[in-house]
Write a protein that binds this DNA or RNA. Structure first.
Length: 223
DNA sequence: ACATTAAATTCGA
DNA sequence: TCGAATTTAATGT
């Protein structure tokens, strides 16, 4: 079982819980590691646990019947996702792929449901999380196809720096241009050009294997 | 796809 | 343990 300090560090929502809730939650957590490129959850399987990223980077995507792939969003360290489907016990409507070596924390479904029934603080966290994602997906709906790559990259990055989903993320992230391409659904060279455009617009700084966001508001407006 | 450069790793002293 | 040499990874075009 994870120790208390580790749990507090990897699950920001745990810090809001009362001590009995905290202990219940801690007992329901398991850690699991996945290799880069590995499919973590296949589409259509039932959610038996609520996952959070301890370390690494993951994308949530869907394969259309004609073989195309739509990336819904990326999730990096500190992010928790899929609460809607865990709650309802539905099968996943997307697959989860590790873009780099990744460690997940998994909160088993019975414990998740127990917290849902008993903890007001936990529910506050869930509501904030759900409404934030709803906003993201509405944005996706508006302009999914036919968007220029700069806007796709801007949106992908803006979600990684979303202050509600990642309250303690700084403005810096270790993320290669290839990973940017995978998240935005474009090739690495195009990601390179798009990042350069965003740099010239003053939205971010590009470093070797990493990025720093200078103007998050501007990034948002690109999408 | 290829050439260049940064970073990580290995190896010898 | 230090630094040069080699290998791997990321970038720019």
């Amino acid at each position: 079982m994870v120790d208390s300090d580790r749990f507090r560090a990897l699950a920001i929502w745990s810090r809001q819980l009362e001590s009995s809730e905290f202990e219940m939650a801690r007992a329901g957590i398991a850690l699991r590691s996945f290799a880069r490129g590995q499919c973590i959850f296949r589409e259509g399987l039932n959610f038996d646990a609520w996952p959070g990223i301890v370390e690494g980077l993951v994308k949530l995507c869907h394969r259309t019947p004609d073989g195309r792939e739509i990336t819904y969003t990326g999730v990096h360290a500190g992010g928790w996702f899929g609460e809607g489907t865990v709650l309802k016990g539905e099968p996943r409507r997307y697959e989860v792929v590790a873009l780099r070596d990744t460690t997940l924390a998994l909160l088993d479904r019975p414990t998740f449901l127990w917290l849902f029934e008993h903890s007001v603080r936990f529910n506050h966290f869930l509501v904030g999380q759900l409404s934030e994602r709803l906003g993201q997906f509405m944005g996706l709906l508006e302009n999914d196809r036919l968007r220029d790559p700069v806007a796709r990259v801007a949106r992908a990055l803006a979600t990684l720096f979303n202050p509600v989903l990642y309250p303690e993320a700084g403005s810096h992230i270790v993320l290669s241009q290839e990973e940017v391409g995978l998240l935005a659904g474009i090739s690495r060279p195009v990601a390179n050009q798009s990042l350069k455009a965003l740099f010239q617009a003053g939205a971010l700084k590009v470093e070797y294997g990493a990025l720093t966001v200078v103007d998050l508001e501007q990034l948002r407006r690109f999408g």
